[in-house]
C-alpha cells in the first residue's frame, strides 16, 4: 500500500474496542467471565496459527521451497476455504466438549 498520508488531512483513526454500556456478566465470579474471554481469544490465535501452518504446508506441497512473502500473499481457493472453515468448526467442537447433563 502506498504511503500517501502526506497529501491527506485525515488523521490516523483508532476505533474504540469496547462498547458503550455495562458488559454482561454470566458467572458469579467475574474472573470466570474474564477467563472465558482469554480462552476464546487464545482459540482465535490458535486458529490463525493453524492457518499459517496450513498455508506453509500447501505452498511446500506445491513449490518445494517458499519465502515469507509467498506465505502472506497466499490466497486460498474455494476448496481450501471450505476445508479451513470445516477445521475451525471441528476445532471448536473438540475444545468445547460440554459435559452431559447428570
Amino acid at each position: 500500500m502506498a504511503d500517501n498520508s502526506a497529501d491527506k488531512p485525515t488523521k490516523d483513526v483508532k476505533l474504540p474496542r469496547s462498547s458503550k454500556g455495562a458488559r454482561s456478566r454470566f458467572f458469579d465470579d467475574p474472573a470466570i467471565d474474564q477467563i472465558m474471554t482469554f480462552l476464546l481469544e487464545l482459540m482465535a490465535e490458535t486458529n490463525a496459527l493453524r492457518e499459517r501452518a496450513d498455508t506453509i504446508e500447501r505452498l511446500l506441497d506445491e513449490k518445494g521451497t517458499i519465502n515469507r512473502d509467498e506465505i502472506e500473499a497466499y490466497r486460498p481457493d474455494a476448496e481450501c476455504e471450505a476445508e479451513r472453515s470445516a477445521w475451525s468448526q471441528a476445532f471448536i467442537q473438540r475444545v468445547m466438549r460440554f459435559h452431559e447433563p447428570d
Binding site: 482459540m43 486458529n47 475451525s88 476445532f91 471448536i92
Partner: peptide
C-alpha cells in the same frame, strides 16, 4: 485466521 474462528464460534 481470527475472522474464520469468529465465524465458526
Amino acid at each position: 485466521g481470527r475472522q474464520r474462528f469468529c465465524s465458526a464460534l
